[in-house]
């Protein structure tokens, strides 16, 4: 092998190393995208997501000059013999005010089971202003057969909520827990 060719081989090896490094970086980037997306959603309210753990009460003064309607919607995903009802369909709050809404969970099935309510806020630009101090959606719930349980949602609408938004809908979808997908293969 001539010197030129040797040099060329070294250069090729260097290029390959660099491209592989780039490749590894992109793989890392892809993996990082998942948590980044969640953080991004929480910060911006993208896709109507709210924080997944309790937030502290915001200190801004209550804006008594403005009222916002908060509407609750509940839904059951397939597979959980529970009922979830919002005890109030809507509540009116002043931005900054700490408010409470109650939800009733009933297990109408024949055995102990667990479920989790997944929240979603619309319009999504309102999601980041929806602060939750206490919510059953932060963890999964267990109910005995026939058990009924009332659970509170303590929340606050941030006074920074954009002017145009005067109604927020919070939807809870109740999902069974501990079920892997592909469950239908088991008959």
């Amino acid at each position: 092998m001539s010197r030129d060719q040797q040099l060329q081989q070294q250069n090729v090896a260097r290029t390959v190393r660099r491209v592989l490094l780039g490749l590894v970086l992109m793989v890392g980037f892809t993996i990082a995208l998942v948590p980044l997306y969640d953080v991004f959603c929480e910060v911006t309210g993208l896709n109507g997501k709210t924080a997944s753990s309790a937030q502290v009460v915001g200190g801004a003064p209550v804006d008594t000059g403005r009222r916002v309607e908060v509407q609750f919607v509940t839904r059951n995903a397939p597979g959980l013999p529970w009922r979830l009802d919002a005890m109030e369909q809507t509540v009116w709050v002043h931005p900054g005010e700490v408010a409470l809404a109650r939800f009733a969970f009933v297990n109408v099935g024949q055995e102990l089971s667990s479920g989790r309510a997944v929240p979603s806020v619309s319009p999504s630009q309102g999601a980041r202003y929806f602060r939750k101090m206490e919510c059953f959606c932060f963890q999964e719930q267990w109910l005995e057969a026939g058990e009924r349980s009332e659970m509170p949602l303590v929340f606050q609408i941030d006074p920074d909520l954009p002017e145009g938004v005067n109604k927020l809908t919070l939807a809870y979808t109740l999902y069974p827990q501990g079920q892997a997908i592909g469950g239908y293969h088991e008959q």
Binding site: N76, P78, G79, P81, R83, Q110, P176, Q179
Partner: peptide, 22 residues
């Protein structure tokens, strides 16, 4: 029988079978 009623009322998780109870 119970299983049948449950499936129709509440669906089967992770499948296309919806619950029609509500």
């Amino acid at each position: 029988r119970d299983k049948h009623i449950n499936a129709v009322l509440f669906g089967r998780p992770g499948t296309s079978m919806p619950g029609y109870g509500t």
